[in-house]
Each structure stands twice: as structure tokens, then as C-alpha cells.
């Protein structure tokens, strides 16, 4: 019972932050996802100590563990796009695969290079 109350209160806190972020974005026409602004606000509130991490853990971790549930109803809309993937699916392969390799090797290569050189300088 206490856990359920705690869960609901924490969920409400997350919802309030999201709701305010979405409102700010709509009012000021910012080209930014509401979730990202909310995330940045919550991160700042946690860093400044206004919100303690214990106030969120009960609701947040179960929610994040089942995050992929929320994508299912969105992905079901793909049933409307069957023809598109049948006709143009092969054209998607190259951009998706090449960009994936580019991301892996750019980030991996740069970070390995930069951390290796800082180690040679004696710093770490």
C-alpha cells in the first residue's frame, strides 16, 4: 500500500515535470522534444539537490525497465506502411547500415585516440 502511494506520488512528480516542459515548448515554439527538456530540468534539479534521487527511484526504475512497452502501440502503426517497406525496403538498407558503421567507428576511434594520448601525457 505504501509502495503504491509512493509509486503514484513519484509518477505524479515526473508527470508534472513533463507537463511543464511540454507547456514551455508549446508556448515558446521551441524546436525541442518535451521529453528532452524535462530530462534536462530533472537532471538540473537532481544536481542542485532540489529533488533527491530517493524521491524518484520507486517509480522511475520500473517505468524504465518496461519502457519498451510504450513503443509497441506506436510501432503497431507500421501495419499502415506495409506497402512502403515492400516497395522501398531495399533502399533503406544502405543508409541504415553505413550510418551505423560510421557512428561506431567515429565515436570508438575518437575516444580511443583521445584517451590514449592523454595517458601518454601522463594525465588520466
Amino acid at each position: 500500500m505504501i509502495t503504491a502511494l509512493k509509486f503514484s506520488a513519484q509518477l505524479f512528480l515526473l508527470w508534472v515535470i513533463y507537463f511543464l516542459s511540454a507547456w514551455v515548448i508549446k508556448t515558446f515554439h521551441l524546436p525541442l522534444p518535451g521529453g528532452v527538456l524535462g530530462m534536462l530540468i530533472l537532471f538540473a534539479l537532481l544536481l542542485s539537490g532540489v529533488i533527491k534521487e530517493e524521491w524518484l527511484t520507486t517509480a522511475t526504475f520500473p517505468l524504465l525497465r518496461h519502457l519498451s512497452f510504450f513503443f509497441i502501440p506506436i510501432a503497431v502503426e507500421l501495419m499502415e506502411w506495409g506497402d512502403l517497406f515492400r516497395q522501398k525496403g531495399h533502399l533503406l538498407f544502405l543508409p541504415l547500415v553505413v550510418s551505423l558503421l560510421v557512428a561506431l567507428l567515429t565515436t570508438g576511434g575518437i575516444v580511443q585516440l583521445l584517451t590514449a594520448s592523454s595517458r601518454k601525457d601522463g594525465g588520466h
Binding site: G35, E53, L64
Partner: peptide
């Protein structure tokens, strides 16, 4: 989904 996305700040923190 929106509130859950905001929660992504917690693991980052």
C-alpha cells in the same frame, strides 16, 4: 511515455 522519458535523467544523474 512522456513522464518515463523524463525519468531517463535519473540513471544519467
Amino acid at each position: 511515455l512522456g513522464p518515463a522519458t523524463v525519468g531517463l535523467a535519473l540513471p544519467l544523474y
